[in-house]
Nucleic acid binder design. Structure first.
Lengths: 334, 334
DNA sequence: CTGAAAGCGCTTACAG
DNA sequence: CTGAAAGCGCTTACAG
């Protein structure tokens, strides 16, 4: 792991100065084609590649992006954000240095520690779509937010397009002939529940249908879904339900079972998340909207890289990424 | 992000040489207590901390561990391994540099790229408990495996204690009065299914009970659980099932429902994984064995750090970490 | 197009 | 206990 050959050996073997070797590798100076050839050949023979640490000593760029993840272990899809970011970053010869912090812990000592490593920019991924206060030590101009935005919107951020995703779900139900489409959600005031609900209501109104929403005060979970669905069925007889999340949808499945309602025979259900091992494992398979986590990670990395390169036309403000419908067996034509 | 104060400014402000400042911070040389005080005071006033990149230039240690994760996004708990490793690493002032590779892609160019960053050691986390071939470029003496081991066992590795975990599950069922306890699992020959099955059979035999195992040729999934459970119930009338995984257990729930069997009234079920949003969301809540992912990540990091420190008594071979039972509502006294 | 030299911010023998 | 000096492996003006 790590051999001892340096720029000096390459210079010597190819009969040029280390300056020229440096030029050849960085592509910065002028080097004749024949010299380039000889240098690269010598480098190949010697198994040389420039030491990124030494490089970082002199150059502005360090070749490393910081990745701050809130509660990386909590949600199953945080890994997808990491994966997306990691793949584009590595294509550009960059590395990801990663730390895990708790939600709302902007004074975590790990953050200065990460910054001390002279990362070129940082990606901050929130645990779920929400407003965050950027820790003081983070430079707003060298940070990109994922699934998050600041009150003043002064930090570039990439978020899911809640409106588009919810509209996709509701329209699926409308297009499939349903009239009595209810929405179950949570009361906690986050952008996701707020925007999805608004999009649901708008889509219903556009179709000349009456919106019916039941919200649970519990956190997004199967239990919250049971809570809201139970109350919903006491008052109404919907033919379809648009659930805020797959977890709520699971609760709907459970209540439907208790009530002797078959899915999709008596009740169609659409969720949001496409949660692994849930949406596909449930019976019948849940039709749901896939959140674009990997894509968000990818975009965040691209933006971070454009910050490092100081691209003039780089993304500003908030970019909303679209999700897409994953059709399984929980929706039936009415 | 990053201020321009260096060791020189601190030396000047505290009236000593940079050598002394370096000694004070590294704790390596001899520095009088009063000098130390002055140095640290000056450093605090200036907001100085040693540049890890410059440090890495001269010292053997770089303060960074590599973390190679197979399919970080695939399984929900890979994040727990990362989280465990990250937390111990950061307590020791180290950072984690992370890449994501596919299973069986030992020639991924990202690995040399990671090594080129001169990481002090690397943690390699497999997607699931299995045998791996270590990529050639990885030094067996500076690598620690998580959820994996090599054919020759020449790399330190930390794995879950499959036998202990399966025994915990089966004994729970035995202690609770069950006699007809079946095991459903998968045929694919991995250490997890092999060792859990063996432990199940041993525990049954010890209790004077007859083991009954049905295995599905499908990948671990609810569908595989349905497949194995359906066949099981054609031939037998078990009062309890020990499922290889929570996902198989989900399939058991589904088959029980079809058959009009209530859980836990007619059938007790125990799984393995404690898969988030599944084990706790299913109705009734699934009693299952928690895999020690976070603990495995933690241990791997501790071992990696002991390698960096060249501890004489550092862990060798394979360390098996125990899991624990998470009791919910799927088991009833018989 | 090529190279000698300074220097990035530290650590590490070594001398005092 | 303290400090002057060399050097880690590169990059970057600058001169030729």
């Amino acid at each position: 792991m790590g051999n001892g050959v340096g720029i000096r050996e390459v210079a010597q073997r190819s009969g040029v100065s280390i300056t020229t070797v440096s030029h050849a590798f960085s592509g910065r100076g002028q080097v004749s084609e024949s010299t380039r050839q000889r240098v690269f050949e010598a480098a190949r023979d010697l198994g040389y590649s420039p030491d990124p640490v030494a490089r970082a000593m002199r150059s502005a760029s360090r070749g490393v992006l910081g990745f701050i993840s809130e509660e990386v272990a909590t949600l199953p899809y945080s890994g997808e954000i990491v994966r997306g970011a990691q793949s584009v970053v590595s294509q550009h010869g960059f590395m990801l240095m990663m730390i895990n912090v708790e939600e709302h812990s902007s004074d975590d000592p790990q953050i200065p520690q990460l910054l001390a490593q002279r990362v070129d920019a940082v990606i901050y991924a929130a645990a779920h779509h929400r407003e965050v206060i950027l820790p003081d030590c983070l430079d707003p101009d060298r940070t990109v937010l994922v699934d998050a935005f600041t009150p003043t919107q002064n930090v570039v951020s990439v978020v899911p397009n809640e409106t588009q995703m919810a509209t996709l779900a509701v329209n699926k139900l409308i297009d499939t002939g349903h009239k009595r489409i209810a929405h179950i959600t949570v009361t906690s005031p986050n952008p996701a529940s707020r925007e999805r609900r608004r999009a649901y209501e708008a889509a219903m109104l556009r179709a000349g249908l009456e919106p019916i929403t039941y919200a649970s005060e519990l956190d997004s979970s199967a239990e919250a879904g049971r809570d809201a669905a139970t109350r919903l069925f006491e008052d109404h007889k919907p033919s379809a339900i648009f659930a805020f999340s797959d977890r709520l949808a699971m609760g709907v499945y459970q209540v439907a079972r208790e009530l002797g309602l078959s899915i999709p025979g008596d009740l169609s259900v659409v969720g949001v998340d496409n949660m692994p091992f849930v949406a596909d494992a449930v019976l019948p398979g849940l039709t749901t909207v896939q959140l674009p986590h990997e894509e968000m990670g990818r975009r965040a990395a691209e933006i971070a890289l454009s910050i490092v390169r100081r691209d003039a036309d780089r993304q500003q403000g908030t970019e909303a990424i679209k999700g897409w419908l994953v059709e399984r067996d929980s929706v039936k034509h009415q």
